[in-house]
């Protein structure tokens, strides 16, 4: 396959950045998208140019590192996958492919395609946990009955890998799908219910403070999420937060 890549190059946070065009030839359709960029980077290094900086880690779709906005969509044209699971057979010979970093004020570009997603960690730090001591004194799992539907919904929410595709595709750069997945994954289970009220208040407050936008219910996040996290979670967060705001004595 022969391809034209239009890649966002930005030499550090202060640099203005620009789209740079690269011609690629003899690309195998069986290559993964990241392998194709590895090939390009080797060519760049041989020429003495600066290779394209991009995030990657597990290369099996669970770490959520490979944040790339490919041809107008996070993680490219296929549904329910991350960039590392995207293969070149999803493109045609002669295609032009745009590769850009996530665009959000809360995710500043560090270099080229690498953005700083510390903001997600900050949201987790204010409530994405349960304060239960699990060191050696865990009780039997069956001691606390959980309705099957709640367990399923909690597990679905828990599949969120924090990749940031929801923020990247949202026209408002809203982090509500991410935050709501973290809130419902814990709020639906008995261990998480204890701190549910505080968690909803703190995580939403932090999310706002970090400069993420508001949800306008367009639903782009749900479509682009590699793990298929549902808008059900945002509704649950909206309920949790409303109830918590009214009940809270703080």
């Amino acid at each position: 396959m022969n391809l034209t890549l239009k890649v966002w190059r930005q030499n550090g946070a202060e640099d203005k950045g620009r789209i740079v065009e690269y011609k690629m030839s003899d690309i195998s359709p069986d290559m993964s998208f990241l392998e194709m960029i590895d090939v390009l980077n080797e060519e760049l290094i041989e020429k003495g140019d600066d290779p394209i900086a991009f995030d990657h880690d597990c290369r099996e779709g669970i770490c959520g590192s490979c944040s790339m906005y490919i041809n107008g969509e996070p993680h490219g044209p296929e549904d329910l996958i991350t960039t590392c699971q995207l293969h070149m057979r999803s493109f045609k010979d002669g295609d032009t492919i745009y590769i850009e970093p996530w665009r959000a004020a809360a995710f500043p570009v560090i270099k080229d395609l690498v953005v700083d997603r510390t903001a997600f960690d900050a949201i987790i730090q204010v409530g994405g946990y349960v304060s239960v001591n699990t060191s050696g004194n865990t009780q039997d799992a069956n001691a606390l009955p959980v309705p099957k539907a709640d367990a399923d919904a909690a597990f679905d929410a828990a599949t969120c890998i924090g990749c940031g595709a929801c923020v990247a595709t949202c026209k408002n750069s809203s982090a509500m799908l991410f935050t709501s997945a973290k809130i419902s994954h814990l709020a639906l289970l008995p261990q998480g219910k204890v701190e549910a009220q505080e968690r909803a208040l703190n995580m939403v407050e932090k999310m706002d403070e970090l400069g993420f936008g508001n949800c306008t219910n367009t639903g782009d996040c749900e479509v682009q999420c590699p793990k298929g996290i549902s808008l059900d979670n945002i509704a649950l967060m909206n309920r949790e937060f409303l109830g918590a705001s009214l009940k809270s004595e703080k």
Binding site: N71, E73, Y98, E100, R103, K171, G211, G213, T218, D220
Partner: peptide
């Protein structure tokens, strides 16, 4: 919302 997304994509395909 505008402040939250100050830079637009060169190529953007929305499904909504």
């Amino acid at each position: 919302n505008k402040t939250a997304q100050p830079v637009k994509y060169a190529m953007d395909k929305k499904k909504s």
